[in-house]
């Protein structure tokens, strides 16, 4: 039934409006641009922000990759990829280097991104000041005045309570020395990848109706106090069970028969490529 639909599902004027919002977002790095979030065949809060950006940017020559928490094969990633493919007929891939558009939820791929690629992140809560200021009217003013003491206060409170900043994911960052931005719930491990990235990073929040962006080669600094520096997650010397790699983001898994805890690379396509390379080398 999708074959009869418009290319990339959305009508042209909707796509144009979303592209215009994206352009504005790129022009003001880190600023949340409001846009008219469209109805889609998936529920709001399930990646509609990212999907609308993908659908409005995609062309026939694009190669698309969709991941969900590092995995190309989870139900959400597969469903979103199917929807994009059925309405556009573009090629899809799981190889990060090959893709021109990468839609992702909660992770930035381990393979370094390169120039010309666009990474589109699905964002549930775009407002970094929301947990200290519930009113949108007021947070907009705070952004305008560059008053980010709320975001710092949250970290200070964490240090008071837990002895360290307790943001598991979505650790706030300052973009280009101006706007403080929620990097969507990527783990702190991925925060440094935002800084000076050669690829364009776009953030779409469908339920909250906001689009924001980090243009290529933009300075992105994770907020941290002078005496409590920013730290990525550490895995206490644990290694991936299958590859033996350690400087990657690991999943903690439990073997259901033995109850043993083991670690494995979270980014599934990176894991697969690494294993394939090893087998190739062995057969040679």
């Amino acid at each position: 039934m999708f074959k009869e639909k418009h290319f990339a599902f959305l009508d042209e004027s909707s796509k144009k409006e979303i592209r215009r919002a994206v352009l504005k977002a790129v022009a003001i790095p880190g600023y949340q641009v409001p846009f008219a979030s469209r109805e889609l065949p998936i529920a709001r809060g399930w990646g509609t922000g990212g999907l609308q950006i993908t659908l409005s940017l995609i062309g026939e020559d694009d190669i698309v990759k969709v991941i969900d928490q590092g995995s190309d094969e989870s139900v959400n990633a597969v469903s979103l990829r199917n929807l994009i493919q059925e309405t556009t007929n573009v090629r899809s891939t799981i190889r990060t280097q090959e893709a021109t558009l990468i839609q992702t939820r909660h992770r930035i791929p381990e393979t370094p991104l390169k120039e010309g690629q666009i990474l589109i992140l699905q964002v549930p809560l775009p407002e970094p000041l929301r947990n200290v200021e519930p009113s949108e009217y007021k947070t907009k003013k705070l952004h305008g005045e560059g008053d980010y003491s709320g975001a710092w206060l949250k970290m200070f409170e964490d240090i008071m309570r837990y002895g360290q900043t307790a943001t598991g994911a979505d650790h706030p960052v300052c973009v280009d020395g101006r706007y403080v931005m929620a990097p969507s719930p990527i783990p702190r491990f991925d925060n440094p990848k935002l800084d000076n990235s050669p690829a364009l990073l776009l953030f779409g929040a469908g339920r909250e109706k906001k689009i924001y962006a980090v243009p290529p080669y933009t300075q992105v600094v994770s907020l941290a106090f002078d005496d409590y520096p920013f730290r990525r997650e550490r895995f206490a010397g644990e290694k991936c069970r299958l590859t033996g790699l350690s400087d990657v983001y690991l999943d903690e898994l439990t073997d259901e028969t033995t109850g043993e805890i083991y670690y494995q690379i979270n980014d599934s396509s990176y894991l697969l490529e690494h294993l394939n390379r090893e087998t190739e080398m062995q057969t040679e």
């Binding site: 008053d147 003491s149 710092w152 206060l153 200070f156 240090i159 106090f225 409590y228």
Partner: peptide, 14 residues
Amino acid sequence: IAEKMIAAGNRDVH
């Protein structure tokens, strides 16, 4: 209390 100091630009927790 720290809120006022953070707003004044202090970034040193101790």
